[in-house]
């Protein structure tokens, strides 16, 4: 049997979902954002929610997310995605509303909006990409930057006297009464990609069931900002990020 015999629509196992369009993504090669975009697109297709989803894009690398997924998007001011999502979900409660934010957006400038939206128990899902750095603006230190981690604004590594401790905002959100599901996942291997897909799907279902706020943190890599290859970034993430941001559910009601 030749390869051309195998390559036949009847034998198809996996193809790009139609919810994700053919526009080439601007992300750096190997960026975790692409995998998460793909998972969200697949879940929306599986749930048949393409016409009923309103996503809120952040400021950060994912600011252009609206170009790649064929669903309705709103672009929020920096950090204000949960506030905008609150408004959208309250006005149109039959829609699936989620925010897609990075650590600089959600855990720094948007801390107030995030905590209060979660505390009010808004029926939204928050997808939180944590790569420990401000990727878009050139690798500056973020609240989630690890101790000793070098960034363009902490060239000798983060220190407690000067910069304080890394902020574990997901743990903080898990303690609020408004959240129903808080989990931390990653997308660096096949198994973790599958787990993350299940987690995001559950978050979307919780949102539609009106159970409260769901938060899915995805510990990610920023190989350009970390100045490593995509493969080395994944190894570095497992070795250094996972001990500080351990995988698993923090809350599942």
């Amino acid at each position: 049997m030749t390869i051309n015999d195998i390559i036949n629509p009847a034998n198809l196992v996996y193809a790009k979902t139609k919810v994700m369009n053919d526009v080439p993504m601007h992300y750096c090669p190997g960026c975790s954002h692409g995998v998460v975009h793909k998972l969200i697109a697949e879940i929306i297709e599986e749930m048949d929610f393409q016409e009923k989803t309103i996503a809120i894009a952040p400021v950060g690398c994912a600011v252009f997310a609206y170009k790649y997924l064929d669903i309705d998007w709103q672009q929020a001011a920096h950090g204000r995605a949960p506030a905008l999502a609150t408004a959208v979900k309250r006005l149109l409660p039959d829609r699936l509303v989620f925010t897609y934010q990075g650590d600089g957006d959600l855990a720094a400038i948007g801390t107030a909006e995030t905590i209060h939206a979660a505390n009010r128990g808004e029926n939204i899902a928050i997808i939180f990409i944590n790569n420990g750095i401000y990727g878009m603006t050139g690798g500056q230190m973020a609240p989630t930057t690890l101790m000793g981690m070098k960034s363009s604004t902490s060239p000798n590594g983060r220190t407690v006297p000067l910069n304080g401790h890394p902020l574990d905002i997901t743990k903080l959100l898990a303690q609020l009464d408004g959240t129903c599901y808080v989990t931390r996942q990653s997308v660096h291997t096949v198994g973790t990609v599958r787990k993350t897909k299940k987690a995001i799907r559950l978050a979307f279902e919780n949102s539609m069931a009106g159970k409260g706020t769901s938060v899915v943190e995805i510990v990610s890599t920023c190989n350009s900002g970390w100045k490593m290859t995509p493969e080395a970034s994944n190894d570095w993430m497992v070795e250094n990020m996972f001990p500080v941001f351990p995988m698993g559910d923090l809350k599942n009601l």
């Binding site: 049997m1 390869i3 015999d5 195998i6 390559i7 036949n8 034998n11 198809l12 196992v13 996996y14 193809a15 790009k16 979902t17 994700m20 080439p24 993504m25 992300y27 090669p29 190997g30 960026c31 975790s32 954002h33 692409g34 995998v35 793909k38 997308v187 660096h188 291997t189 096949v190 990609v193 599958r194």
Partner: peptide, 30 residues
């Protein structure tokens, strides 16, 4: 690109981790 096409079992591991959704996977039982 495929360099050892005979070894492929169509498990779709490559497609799942691909950040740019570039890979389409096919599989047959013989």
């Amino acid at each position: 690109a495929m360099v050892d096409a005979d070894s492929c079992v169509g498990c779709a591991a490559c497609a799942l981790v691909c950040p740019d959704a570039c890979i389409t996977v096919y599989k047959v039982r013989i």
